[in-house]
Simulated assay, not measured.
Amino acid sequence: MMQKILLITGAGAGIGAATARRFARKGWRLGLIDIDEAAVVALNEELGGQHWHRGLDVTDRAAVRDALQAFGEFAGGQLDLLFNCAGILRIGEFETIPAEEHRRIMEINVIALMDVTQQAFPLLKTTPGARVINMSSASALYGTPYFASYSASKFAVRGLTEALNNEWKEHDITVQDMMPPFVKTKMLTEQTFRAPIIDRLGVNLEPEDIAEAVWKAHQGNEVHNPVSLQFKSLVFGSKWLPNAFTRQLIGLISKR
């Protein structure tokens, strides 16, 4: 049986690295991409030194093209799963965050994700039953105060996921997303602004929890995959309760 192939962006730390470890334990061959080249070199060595890796800024379209070509040669033209995990976060009052940072969030979380996915399409198309899993967020359910541009980026990822899952059915490609609340990663813990919603809900998930959820998601057919009982309850409630309830709830737990 041919080994399955997984390509991960943002693989150098946090959720991306935890997911790499989870799939490697199951015998998958990996492609590891991260802006921190040393991190993916170290991760590859940790996992036995047999995986493809590259230091790469995913907003550099030419570099992405070259990387996908090299990865395709390594993988023999196969890509069973693309996990778009690269992303950044800035928490704070919208008007105080420099415009360049808002733009950077959209460039990495949305535009680069679209670019990687588009350039990976030829590999996905030639692999029976291929999948794309995008890293979305609980912030894609309803706009979260002090996460404005991040929330906007994840709404875009949610919309893209839904559209491509329908559009790419004819190519036998399933497109899904992960929607966790707060995860204990450096991206969150190193923020200088403390959003009230974090204090009220807590940070109860580890990167390994998301990696396990990705493993389960790739075996199923749910387009949106909320993570944690807490957030699943909110998603379930939003299906039956008016939007005003969700809006009021988010406002209440975000109030300073």
Score class of each variant (00 low, 15 high):
residue 36 D to A: 14
residue 162 E to N: 08
residue 96 T to W: 02
residue 242 P to S: 10
residue 28 W to C: 00
residue 198 I to D: 06
residue 95 E to P: 00
residue 124 L to T: 12
residue 131 R to E: 14
residue 153 S to H: 04
residue 240 W to M: 14
residue 245 F to D: 01
residue 50 Q to C: 09
residue 31 G to C: 04
residue 143 G to H: 01
residue 168 W to R: 07
residue 32 L to G: 14
residue 38 A to F: 08
residue 11 A to M: 02
residue 133 I to K: 11
residue 145 P to S: 07
residue 225 N to P: 08
residue 172 D to H: 13
residue 121 F to G: 06
residue 223 V to M: 07
residue 234 L to V: 15
residue 180 P to Q: 03
residue 43 L to G: 08
residue 107 E to S: 07
residue 79 L to M: 08
residue 94 F to R: 07
residue 112 A to N: 06
residue 215 W to I: 10
residue 88 I to W: 07
residue 39 A to H: 05
residue 59 T to I: 11
residue 134 N to Y: 04
residue 42 A to P: 05
residue 30 L to E: 08
residue 68 L to Y: 04
residue 203 V to F: 05
residue 204 N to Y: 04
residue 132 V to I: 15
residue 22 R to Y: 12
residue 200 R to G: 07
residue 42 A to S: 12
residue 196 P to C: 04
residue 101 E to F: 00
residue 128 P to Y: 05
residue 158 R to S: 14
residue 44 N to F: 09
residue 37 E to Q: 14
residue 160 L to N: 01
residue 144 T to R: 10
residue 38 A to L: 12
residue 138 A to D: 01
residue 3 Q to N: 12
residue 83 F to G: 01
residue 45 E to L: 11
residue 24 A to K: 09
residue 235 V to C: 14
residue 110 V to T: 13
residue 157 V to W: 07
residue 94 F to K: 10
residue 153 S to K: 06
residue 57 D to V: 09
residue 147 F to W: 14
residue 115 D to W: 04
residue 229 L to T: 13
residue 233 S to W: 14
residue 235 V to K: 05
residue 226 P to Q: 10
residue 188 L to K: 03
residue 161 T to C: 08
residue 9 T to C: 06
residue 92 G to R: 02
residue 144 T to N: 13
residue 219 Q to H: 12
residue 166 N to M: 13
residue 93 E to A: 03
residue 42 A to K: 11
residue 237 G to V: 06
residue 191 Q to P: 02
residue 169 K to I: 06
residue 88 I to Q: 06
residue 205 L to V: 11
residue 220 G to C: 09
residue 116 V to N: 07
residue 166 N to H: 13
residue 33 I to T: 05
residue 195 A to T: 05
residue 133 I to D: 07
residue 118 Q to N: 09
residue 89 L to G: 03
residue 139 S to M: 03
residue 210 I to S: 08
residue 165 N to L: 12
residue 127 T to R: 04
residue 46 E to F: 07
residue 235 V to N: 07
residue 139 S to E: 00
residue 246 T to W: 04
residue 98 P to A: 08
residue 204 N to L: 14
residue 212 E to C: 05
residue 242 P to Q: 10
residue 44 N to V: 03
residue 207 P to D: 11
residue 73 E to L: 10
residue 173 I to Y: 03
residue 3 Q to E: 15
residue 105 I to W: 00
residue 237 G to D: 06
residue 210 I to A: 06
residue 173 I to G: 11
residue 243 N to A: 12
